[in-house]
Computed example of a mutant assay.
Amino acid sequence: MDDTSADLVFQGVKADQATETECLKDGGIPDYEGVVRVPASMVAQIRKACDEAERRAAVQ
């Protein structure tokens, strides 16, 4: 989490070409964005990070 903005910052495995192509069916991917895979095992940690980001953003 970015301490200044409370934005979540994700690091993950870059998606393969087939996954990226599937994502493109829903719309374009801007040059400044990328498609990453976040393992399902990370859901609880992401949920916790979302709760913390929401809490911090409310304070700012």
Rank of each mutant, 00 (worst) to 15 (best):
K48Q: 10
V43G: 01
D16Q: 12
C50F: 02
V59K: 12
V35E: 04
A18T: 13
D16R: 10
G28T: 12
S41E: 12
D16K: 06
Q11G: 11
V35P: 06
K25G: 00
A44Y: 00
E22Q: 12
R56E: 04
V13G: 07
V43T: 09
Y32N: 11
E54W: 10
M1H: 06
Q60C: 00
V9N: 07
V13F: 05
R55K: 13
G34S: 11
C23K: 06
D7Q: 12
L24W: 00
M1R: 05
V35M: 08
P39F: 01
V13M: 12
T4F: 15
A6L: 05
D51T: 07
C50K: 00
E54C: 04
Q60Y: 02
G28C: 04
L24H: 03
L8R: 07
E52P: 00
D16W: 08
T21Q: 14
G28M: 04
T21M: 09
S5L: 11
V13H: 11
R37P: 01
V36I: 15
D7V: 03
E20M: 08
G12R: 01
D31Y: 11
K14Y: 14
A49M: 11
D2C: 08
I29L: 13
Q45Y: 00
E33S: 09
R37L: 14
Q60P: 00
Y32T: 07
A15S: 15
R56W: 01
T4H: 12
V59C: 01
A49Q: 10
Q17H: 11
E52I: 05
Q11I: 06
A18R: 02
Q17C: 02
E54S: 04
G12T: 07
C50Q: 09
E22L: 10
R56C: 00
G28I: 10
M1V: 08
S41K: 03
E54V: 05
G12F: 07
D26G: 01
R47A: 10
G34T: 12
Q45T: 06
K14Q: 13
G34D: 11
M1N: 06
R37T: 13
V35Y: 08
D31I: 14
S41I: 04
R56Q: 05
D31H: 10
E22I: 04
K14D: 14
A15M: 10
R37F: 14
T19R: 14
T21H: 06
E33D: 15
T19A: 11
